[in-house]
Amino acid sequence: MTQNEVHDNREAGRYELQTPQGLAFAEYRPAGPAVMFTHTEVPEALEGQGIGSRLVKAALDDVQAQGRKVIPMCPFVAAFIGQHPEYLELVDPAQRGALGM
């Protein structure tokens, strides 16, 4: 994995982005035909600089390419989807209301 490249670390169950300040990641677990995102973390020195958004966008693009759905239990992932309606189709319509989408 090179710096600035988002990588799906399937063994760890997370998408990762290595930065000079440390590892940013979005944890997930398979949930049938969907992927449940549970937690996103960015090195404190990089918060507010778009690293989390870049990471989540790459993760959602990968899930979409696999033809899977998303269960955004992580508040950051849910907020990202809420701000980027092009990803709303990845969330089952029955779950959108419960997540405030």
Rank of each mutant, 00 (worst) to 15 (best):
I51V: 15
A78V: 07
F37P: 08
F37T: 05
K69T: 07
A45L: 11
V63I: 15
V91Y: 07
G32H: 08
E47V: 12
M73K: 12
F25Q: 00
R10N: 00
N4D: 06
E89W: 01
D62C: 04
P43R: 07
P33L: 02
G48F: 13
E16R: 01
Q18H: 14
I81S: 06
Q95Y: 15
E41K: 04
G52T: 04
R54W: 01
L99F: 15
M36Y: 06
R14G: 01
P75D: 14
T40A: 05
A34C: 05
M1H: 14
V42P: 05
E44R: 12
P75V: 14
N4E: 06
V70Y: 01
R10P: 00
R68S: 01
R10A: 00
P43V: 03
G48E: 11
F80Y: 15
M36V: 13
Q3Y: 01
A65M: 06
S53P: 06
R68K: 07
V56R: 02
A94F: 12
A24G: 05
T38Y: 11
M73E: 15
D92N: 10
A59E: 04
F80V: 11
Y87M: 09
P85Q: 14
P93A: 13
P43H: 09
E5G: 00
R54D: 04
Q49E: 15
Q64R: 14
H84I: 08
Q64F: 05
L90C: 07
G48R: 10
G97C: 14
G22S: 10
D92I: 02
Q66D: 10
F25D: 00
L88S: 13
P85H: 12
Q83N: 15
I51T: 11
N4P: 00
Q18Y: 05
I51P: 02
L88H: 09
P33H: 01
E47N: 14
D61M: 03
C74L: 10
